[in-house]
Protein backbone atom coordinates (compact mmCIF):
# COMPACT_ATOMS: atom_id res chain seq x y z
CA UNK A 1 0.00 0.00 0.00
CA UNK A 2 2.75 2.46 0.97
CA UNK A 3 6.38 2.29 -0.09
CA UNK A 4 8.81 4.97 1.02
CA UNK A 5 12.38 4.91 -0.19
CA UNK A 6 15.36 7.10 0.74
CA UNK A 7 13.25 9.97 2.04
CA UNK A 8 15.30 12.97 3.12
CA UNK A 9 14.12 16.29 4.46
CA UNK A 10 16.12 19.10 6.01
CA UNK A 11 14.77 22.15 7.83
CA UNK A 12 17.64 24.61 7.96
CA UNK A 13 20.45 22.72 9.68
CA UNK A 14 18.14 20.11 11.13
CA UNK A 15 17.98 16.82 9.23
CA UNK A 16 14.40 15.72 9.99
CA UNK A 17 14.46 12.68 7.69
CA UNK A 18 17.68 10.97 6.80
CA UNK A 19 16.99 8.28 4.21
CA UNK A 20 13.72 6.89 5.53
CA UNK A 21 12.76 3.51 4.07
CA UNK A 22 9.40 2.06 4.97
CA UNK A 23 6.89 -0.35 3.54
CA UNK A 24 3.33 -1.01 4.67
CA UNK A 25 1.48 -4.03 3.35
CA UNK A 26 -2.18 -3.81 2.40
CA UNK A 27 -4.49 -4.52 5.33
CA UNK A 28 -1.82 -3.83 7.96
CA UNK A 29 -2.31 -1.78 11.10
CA UNK A 30 1.11 -0.22 11.21
CA UNK A 31 2.38 1.40 14.38
CA UNK A 32 4.79 4.23 13.70
CA UNK A 33 6.86 4.84 16.81
CA UNK A 34 9.67 7.20 17.63
CA UNK A 35 10.78 9.79 20.16
CA UNK A 36 9.89 13.45 19.76
CA UNK A 37 11.72 14.99 16.82
CA UNK A 38 12.47 11.59 15.26
CA UNK A 39 10.70 12.58 12.04
CA UNK A 40 7.28 10.89 12.37
CA UNK A 41 5.17 13.96 11.63
CA UNK A 42 7.50 15.08 8.83
CA UNK A 43 7.15 11.67 7.19
CA UNK A 44 3.37 11.75 7.62
CA UNK A 45 3.15 15.26 6.18
CA UNK A 46 5.13 14.14 3.13
CA UNK A 47 2.90 11.09 2.62
CA UNK A 48 -0.22 13.28 2.85
CA UNK A 49 1.16 15.81 0.34
CA UNK A 50 1.55 18.68 2.79
CA UNK A 51 5.30 18.76 2.36
CA UNK A 52 7.76 17.81 -0.36
CA UNK A 53 10.93 15.90 0.48
CA UNK A 54 14.42 16.94 -0.59
CA UNK A 55 15.08 13.41 -1.85
CA UNK A 56 13.36 10.08 -2.05
CA UNK A 57 10.22 8.46 -3.37
CA UNK A 58 6.78 7.78 -1.96
CA UNK A 59 4.51 5.26 -3.63
CA UNK A 60 0.92 5.10 -2.45
CA UNK A 61 -1.50 2.50 -3.82
CA UNK A 62 0.90 1.85 -6.69
CA UNK A 63 1.22 5.50 -7.71
CA UNK A 64 3.99 8.03 -7.25
CA UNK A 65 2.48 10.14 -4.47
CA UNK A 66 4.90 13.03 -5.04
CA UNK A 67 4.21 13.29 -8.74
CA UNK A 68 0.46 12.62 -8.63
CA UNK A 69 -0.33 14.51 -5.44
CA UNK A 70 -3.85 15.46 -6.50
CA UNK A 71 -4.72 11.98 -7.77
CA UNK A 72 -3.65 10.13 -4.61
CA UNK A 73 -5.70 12.43 -2.36
CA UNK A 74 -8.68 10.10 -2.71
CA UNK A 75 -6.56 7.12 -1.63
CA UNK A 76 -5.94 8.25 1.95
CA UNK A 77 -7.71 9.82 4.87
CA UNK A 78 -5.75 11.92 7.35
CA UNK A 79 -6.33 12.45 11.06
CA UNK A 80 -3.82 15.02 12.38
CA UNK A 81 -2.74 15.33 16.00
CA UNK A 82 -4.90 18.47 16.31
CA UNK A 83 -8.50 17.72 15.33
CA UNK A 84 -9.23 20.69 13.06
CA UNK A 85 -12.84 21.44 13.93
CA UNK A 86 -15.36 24.03 12.80
CA UNK A 87 -17.04 24.66 16.13
CA UNK A 88 -19.95 26.62 14.65
CA UNK A 89 -21.13 23.69 12.50
CA UNK A 90 -23.35 20.84 13.56
CA UNK A 91 -21.87 17.34 13.46
CA UNK A 92 -23.74 16.33 10.28
CA UNK A 93 -22.90 19.68 8.65
CA UNK A 94 -19.22 19.13 9.45
CA UNK A 95 -19.39 15.70 7.82
CA UNK A 96 -21.30 16.96 4.79
CA UNK A 97 -18.87 19.84 4.37
CA UNK A 98 -15.95 17.42 4.03
CA UNK A 99 -18.04 15.14 1.83
CA UNK A 100 -18.53 18.07 -0.54
CA UNK A 101 -14.78 18.74 -0.42
CA UNK A 102 -14.40 15.31 -2.07
CA UNK A 103 -17.12 16.10 -4.61
CA UNK A 104 -19.90 14.17 -2.87
CA UNK A 105 -23.32 15.73 -2.54
CA UNK A 106 -27.00 15.07 -1.99
CA UNK A 107 -28.27 11.68 -0.83
CA UNK A 108 -24.97 9.91 -1.43
CA UNK A 109 -23.19 12.26 0.95
CA UNK A 110 -25.96 12.15 3.54
CA UNK A 111 -26.09 8.34 3.48
CA UNK A 112 -22.33 8.07 3.86
CA UNK A 113 -22.32 10.56 6.75
CA UNK A 114 -25.05 8.62 8.56
CA UNK A 115 -23.16 5.32 8.10
CA UNK A 116 -19.93 6.76 9.42
CA UNK A 117 -21.51 8.52 12.39
CA UNK A 118 -23.06 5.17 13.33
CA UNK A 119 -19.71 3.43 12.94
CA UNK A 120 -17.96 5.86 15.29
CA UNK A 121 -20.96 5.85 17.64
CA UNK A 122 -21.86 9.51 17.15
CA UNK A 123 -25.20 9.04 15.38
CA UNK A 124 -27.09 10.29 18.44
CA UNK A 125 -25.06 13.53 18.38
CA UNK A 126 -25.57 14.34 14.69
CA UNK A 127 -27.56 17.50 15.45
CA UNK A 128 -25.23 18.73 18.17
CA UNK A 129 -22.79 21.54 17.52
CA UNK A 130 -19.19 20.39 17.18
CA UNK A 131 -18.04 22.59 20.06
CA UNK A 132 -20.37 20.74 22.43
CA UNK A 133 -18.55 17.41 21.89
CA UNK A 134 -16.01 15.96 24.31
CA UNK A 135 -12.40 15.44 23.22
CA UNK A 136 -12.95 11.74 22.62
CA UNK A 137 -16.06 12.43 20.55
CA UNK A 138 -14.20 15.05 18.52
CA UNK A 139 -11.46 12.53 17.83
CA UNK A 140 -14.02 9.95 16.63
CA UNK A 141 -15.70 12.61 14.50
CA UNK A 142 -12.31 13.44 13.02
CA UNK A 143 -11.83 9.76 12.19
CA UNK A 144 -15.28 9.61 10.56
CA UNK A 145 -14.37 12.71 8.58
CA UNK A 146 -11.19 11.06 7.34
CA UNK A 147 -13.25 8.08 6.13
CA UNK A 148 -15.88 10.12 4.30
CA UNK A 149 -14.52 9.32 0.82
CA UNK A 150 -13.92 5.66 1.71
CA UNK A 151 -10.12 5.71 1.42
CA UNK A 152 -8.07 2.50 1.38
CA UNK A 153 -5.37 4.00 3.56
CA UNK A 154 -5.74 5.88 6.84
CA UNK A 155 -3.01 8.02 8.37
CA UNK A 156 -3.41 8.90 12.04
CA UNK A 157 -0.93 11.16 13.80
CA UNK A 158 -1.00 10.65 17.58
CA UNK A 159 -4.77 9.99 17.54
CA UNK A 160 -5.23 9.03 21.18
CA UNK A 161 -3.21 11.75 22.87
CA UNK A 162 -5.19 13.45 25.61
CA UNK A 163 -7.95 10.82 25.63
CA UNK A 164 -9.18 9.10 28.77
CA UNK A 165 -8.73 5.28 28.99
CA UNK A 166 -12.36 4.52 28.02
CA UNK A 167 -12.20 6.71 24.90
CA UNK A 168 -8.82 5.22 24.03
CA UNK A 169 -10.26 1.73 24.28
CA UNK A 170 -13.27 2.64 22.11
CA UNK A 171 -11.04 4.32 19.55
CA UNK A 172 -8.79 1.28 19.44
CA UNK A 173 -11.80 -0.94 18.82
CA UNK A 174 -12.93 1.24 15.93
CA UNK A 175 -9.44 1.02 14.41
CA UNK A 176 -9.46 -2.76 14.73
CA UNK A 177 -12.89 -2.88 13.03
CA UNK A 178 -11.59 -0.73 10.18
CA UNK A 179 -8.56 -2.95 9.80
CA UNK A 180 -10.84 -5.99 9.70
CA UNK A 181 -12.80 -4.26 6.92
CA UNK A 182 -9.61 -4.20 4.86
CA UNK A 183 -8.34 -0.68 5.48
CA UNK A 184 -4.61 -0.16 5.80
CA UNK A 185 -3.83 2.05 8.78
CA UNK A 186 -0.70 3.95 9.73
CA UNK A 187 -0.90 5.15 13.32
CA UNK A 188 1.77 7.10 15.11
CA UNK A 189 1.65 7.11 18.87
CA UNK A 190 3.68 7.42 22.02
CA UNK A 191 1.46 5.00 23.93
CA UNK A 192 3.44 1.90 23.12
CA UNK A 193 1.47 -0.61 25.17
CA UNK A 194 -1.57 0.38 23.16
CA UNK A 195 0.21 -0.07 19.84
CA UNK A 196 1.52 -3.48 20.80
CA UNK A 197 -2.03 -4.59 21.59
CA UNK A 198 -3.57 -3.53 18.30
CA UNK A 199 -0.87 -3.22 15.61
CA UNK A 200 0.01 -5.99 13.21
CA UNK A 201 3.25 -4.29 12.16
CA UNK A 202 5.56 -1.78 13.68
CA UNK A 203 8.25 0.64 12.56
CA UNK A 204 10.54 2.42 14.97
CA UNK A 205 11.97 5.68 13.68
CA UNK A 206 14.89 7.49 15.21
CA UNK A 207 16.93 10.42 13.88
CA UNK A 208 15.00 10.42 10.63
CA UNK A 209 15.29 6.77 9.67
CA UNK A 210 13.70 3.46 10.49
CA UNK A 211 15.85 1.55 12.97
CA UNK A 212 13.59 -1.45 13.36
CA UNK A 213 10.57 -2.65 11.46
CA UNK A 214 8.58 -5.79 10.84
CA UNK A 215 5.55 -7.63 12.10
CA UNK A 216 4.79 -7.24 15.78
CA UNK A 217 5.43 -10.98 16.32
CA UNK A 218 8.84 -10.85 14.61
CA UNK A 219 9.94 -7.87 16.60
CA UNK A 220 8.85 -9.25 19.94
CA UNK A 221 10.57 -12.50 18.96
CA UNK A 222 13.78 -10.62 18.18
CA UNK A 223 13.81 -8.92 21.50
CA UNK A 224 12.95 -12.16 23.26
CA UNK A 225 16.02 -13.79 21.74
CA UNK A 226 18.18 -11.19 23.40
CA UNK A 227 16.36 -11.53 26.72
CA UNK A 228 17.71 -13.90 29.39
CA UNK A 229 16.37 -17.31 30.29
CA UNK A 230 15.03 -17.42 33.83
CA UNK A 231 15.63 -20.84 35.39
CA UNK A 232 14.26 -21.75 38.80
CA UNK A 233 15.61 -24.84 40.57
CA UNK A 234 14.24 -26.39 43.72
CA UNK A 235 17.64 -27.69 44.83
CA UNK A 236 21.26 -28.28 43.64
CA UNK A 237 21.72 -24.79 42.22
CA UNK A 238 25.56 -25.12 42.06
CA UNK A 239 25.23 -28.34 40.04
CA UNK A 240 22.77 -26.64 37.71
CA UNK A 241 25.19 -23.73 37.10
CA UNK A 242 28.00 -26.22 36.37
CA UNK A 243 25.83 -27.98 33.76
CA UNK A 244 24.77 -24.67 32.22
CA UNK A 245 28.44 -23.58 31.84
CA UNK A 246 29.06 -26.62 29.66
CA UNK A 247 26.58 -25.41 27.00
CA UNK A 248 28.35 -23.29 24.29
CA UNK A 249 25.16 -21.22 23.69
CA UNK A 250 25.24 -19.97 27.28
CA UNK A 251 27.09 -16.64 27.37
CA UNK A 252 26.67 -15.36 30.91
CA UNK A 253 25.11 -16.65 34.10
CA UNK A 254 23.95 -14.54 37.00
CA UNK A 255 21.71 -14.94 40.01
CA UNK A 256 18.59 -12.81 40.50
CA UNK A 257 16.81 -13.63 43.75
CA UNK A 258 15.62 -17.22 43.33
CA UNK A 259 16.30 -17.34 39.57
CA UNK A 260 19.37 -18.26 37.59
CA UNK A 261 19.55 -15.69 34.79
CA UNK A 262 21.19 -17.05 31.64
CA UNK A 263 22.12 -15.11 28.50
CA UNK A 264 21.39 -17.85 26.00
CA UNK A 265 21.87 -17.45 22.25
CA UNK A 266 19.80 -20.28 20.89
CA UNK A 267 16.43 -21.00 19.33
CA UNK A 268 13.45 -22.89 20.81
CA UNK A 269 15.02 -26.26 20.02
CA UNK A 270 18.27 -25.37 21.78
CA UNK A 271 16.27 -24.14 24.76
CA UNK A 272 14.43 -27.50 24.89
CA UNK A 273 17.72 -29.47 24.81
CA UNK A 274 19.19 -27.28 27.55
CA UNK A 275 16.17 -28.06 29.73
CA UNK A 276 16.50 -31.78 28.92
CA UNK A 277 20.20 -31.77 29.95
CA UNK A 278 19.33 -30.15 33.27
CA UNK A 279 16.56 -32.66 33.97
CA UNK A 280 18.74 -35.60 32.81
CA UNK A 281 21.46 -34.29 35.17
CA UNK A 282 19.01 -34.75 38.04
CA UNK A 283 18.36 -31.05 38.63
CA UNK A 284 14.85 -30.42 40.05
CA UNK A 285 13.83 -27.61 37.64
CA UNK A 286 10.71 -25.80 38.82
CA UNK A 287 10.76 -22.96 36.29
CA UNK A 288 12.23 -22.45 32.83
CA UNK A 289 11.12 -19.38 30.90
CA UNK A 290 12.45 -16.76 28.51
CA UNK A 291 11.92 -13.27 29.94
CA UNK A 292 9.25 -11.57 27.82
CA UNK A 293 10.06 -8.31 26.07
CA UNK A 294 7.54 -5.58 25.34
CA UNK A 295 7.42 -2.77 22.84
CA UNK A 296 8.34 -0.28 25.49
CA UNK A 297 11.57 -2.06 26.33
CA UNK A 298 12.45 -2.38 22.64
CA UNK A 299 11.76 1.29 22.15
CA UNK A 300 13.88 2.25 25.14
CA UNK A 301 16.75 0.01 24.04
CA UNK A 302 16.75 1.37 20.50
CA UNK A 303 16.32 5.03 21.22
CA UNK A 304 18.60 5.21 24.27
CA UNK A 305 21.48 6.42 22.13
CA UNK A 306 23.11 8.74 24.63
CA UNK A 307 24.02 5.78 26.82
CA UNK A 308 25.32 3.84 23.85
CA UNK A 309 22.90 1.04 24.51
CA UNK A 310 21.74 0.30 21.01
CA UNK A 311 21.22 -3.42 21.15
CA UNK A 312 18.96 -4.02 18.19
CA UNK A 313 19.04 -2.91 14.62
CA UNK A 314 16.89 -3.91 11.70
CA UNK A 315 19.81 -5.87 10.30
CA UNK A 316 19.97 -8.05 13.40
Amino acid sequence: MLKIHGLKKKFGNFQALNGLDMEIEEGALYGFVGPNGAGKTTAIRIVTGLLLPDEGTVELAGRDALKYREEVKTEFGYVPDEFGMYDNLKVWEYMEFFASCYGMSGLVARKRCTELLEQVRLDDRADAFVDSLSRGMKQRLCLARALIHDPKFLVLDEPTSGMDPRNRMEFKEVLKELCAEGKTILVSSHILSELSQMCTDIGIIDAGKIVLSGSMWEILQKVNDSNPLLIKVYDRREEAIRLLRQDPAVKTISIREEDIMVQFHGDYEAEAYLLKRLVDGGIPVSGFIREQGDLESIFMQITNREKGKVVLTSEE
Partner: peptide, 13 residues
Protein backbone atom coordinates in the same frame (compact mmCIF):
# COMPACT_ATOMS: atom_id res chain seq x y z
CA UNK B 1 -5.25 28.81 13.70
CA UNK B 2 -8.14 26.33 13.89
CA UNK B 3 -5.86 23.68 12.28
CA UNK B 4 -8.42 23.12 9.53
CA UNK B 5 -6.38 24.46 6.63
CA UNK B 6 -4.20 21.35 6.33
CA UNK B 7 -7.29 19.18 6.42
CA UNK B 8 -8.65 21.11 3.44
CA UNK B 9 -5.34 20.61 1.61
CA UNK B 10 -5.64 16.86 1.98
CA UNK B 11 -9.07 16.93 0.30
CA UNK B 12 -9.76 17.67 -3.34
CA UNK B 13 -10.00 21.40 -2.56
Amino acid sequence: ERQTLELLFTTKM
